[in-house]
């Protein structure tokens, strides 16, 4: 028979055991729950990055599985604010080493070119590329069993259709201008590989200074359209920084051809028309794919890579009508639905 003294000791030991088990088991669970590291090419606070993050957080809000998620920003996309690549990459590597993510979500080409490609073929982390304009093969992602993601198909098809409607009875000429960087170089490559007929591609330039930007804009007077691949903060001749917003406003006000942006903030900053990849959608889709990949039970194995051709339209009506451009109603409604129709 168990005496009172023994039972009291047992009780105390079991209470201690419960506390130890409580801390250890919960701690173990917490330490071993899946981890996702989001690595952005752009800087924290830039419109594109913010909107991608917003989409990610929306998808994470729907998720019920305990996860740890961290964000890291390379901030190497804009020439004027660009950190030394080596510094940014070292910081990202340290973050990966410290956090030991199960999945590394690398957003845009710079993050993949500078960091994520190093982890191809490794057991950990799995690499999920998002919004890359170069073909995955350029980063060695083809046939790698730890890589999947969402390639970006820039909205050239939609843009070509709209140009045919804006310039119905003639061959429109389109000049192309952007800030020099990995993403814009990849975008330009995609553009050159696209069949634009009947639209003709004129001069193209990726520049590193605001002066070069203004100079190019002044030189393409004969073009019908100036495609702004991606405005970034650029250094001016006097050493000051011209922000992306100022460049977009200046281009809209001074360019003879019709400026059309490919970035989400082009119209918000003062431009008249843009066709841009949808950042929220990329964010949501990236998290969905990551959760799918982490789920070894119902959907084992990596999700198949996808190519996203979605885009969103943004219109500033007053600026567009000042240039005498009338778009079909469907564009206005698409922009209204997206919340990007400006007066």
């Amino acid at each position: 028979m168990v005496g009172p003294a023994v039972t009291k000791l047992w009780r105390n030991l079991l209470i201690g055991g419960f506390l130890v088990a409580f801390v250890l088991l919960l701690g173990f669970f917490n330490a071993s729950k899946p981890r996702i590291l989001v690595l952005h090419s752009g800087a924290e606070g830039s419109p594109w990055v913010e909107q991608v993050d917003r989409g990610m957080r929306q998808a994470l809000d729907q998720n019920r599985r305990p996860l740890s998620v961290e964000w890291n920003y390379l901030a190497v996309a804009a020439p004027a604010t660009r950190r030394g690549n080596a510094e940014a990459v070292a910081e990202a590597r340290r973050a990966i080493e410290r956090f030991k993510p199960d999945i590394l979500i690398a957003v845009d080409d710079e993050a993949n070119s500078l960091v994520a490609r190093e982890y191809v073929g490794r057991e950990q982390p799995r690499v999920l590329y998002v919004s890359i304009d170069r073909p995955p093969a350029d980063y060695g992602y083809t046939d790698a069993n730890n890589v999947s993601g969402i390639g970006e198909q820039l909205p050239w098809k939609g843009l070509r259709e709209s140009l045919i409607q804006i310039f119905p009875n003639r061959t429109a000429t389109m000049a192309v201008l952007g800030a020099d960087g990995e993403t814009n170089r990849a975008g330009l490559d995609q553009l050159m590989a696209f069949d634009w007929g009947p639209v003709r591609i004129g001069d193209t330039a990726l520049v590193s200074t605001a002066d070069a930007w203004r100079d190019f804009t002044g030189r393409v007077d004969a073009a019908d359209v100036l495609l702004v691949l991606g405005a970034q903060d650029l250094p001016d001749t006097d050493g000051t920084v011209v922000t992306a917003a100022e460049l977009s406003q200046w281009t809209q006000a001074n360019a003879t051809p019709l400026p059309i942006g490919t970035q989400v903030d082009f119209v918000a900053d003062g431009g008249a028309l843009s066709f841009s990849p949808p950042p929220d959608d990329y964010g949501r889709s990236a998290i969905r794919l990551a959760l799918d990949w982490l789920d070894d039970r119902t959907t084992p194995g990596p999700p198949p890579p996808v190519q996203s051709a979605h885009f969103e339209v943004a219109i500033r009506q007053e600026a567009l009508s000042r240039r005498g451009v009338a778009l079909p109603q469907i564009y206005l409604e698409a922009a209204r639905e997206n919340g990007t129709l400006f007066p």
Binding site: V2, T7, K8, L9, W10, G17
Partner: peptide, 26 residues
């Protein structure tokens, strides 16, 4: 561990014991 400690430290307790149900509960 609890079992070993309980066996090693068997000694009378002055302020009474606890019920078996409580031990089973913990």
């Amino acid at each position: 561990f609890a079992g070993v400690v309980a066996l090693l430290r068997r000694r009378p307790d002055s302020d009474g014991g606890v019920g078996t149900a409580e031990i089973v509960g913990w």
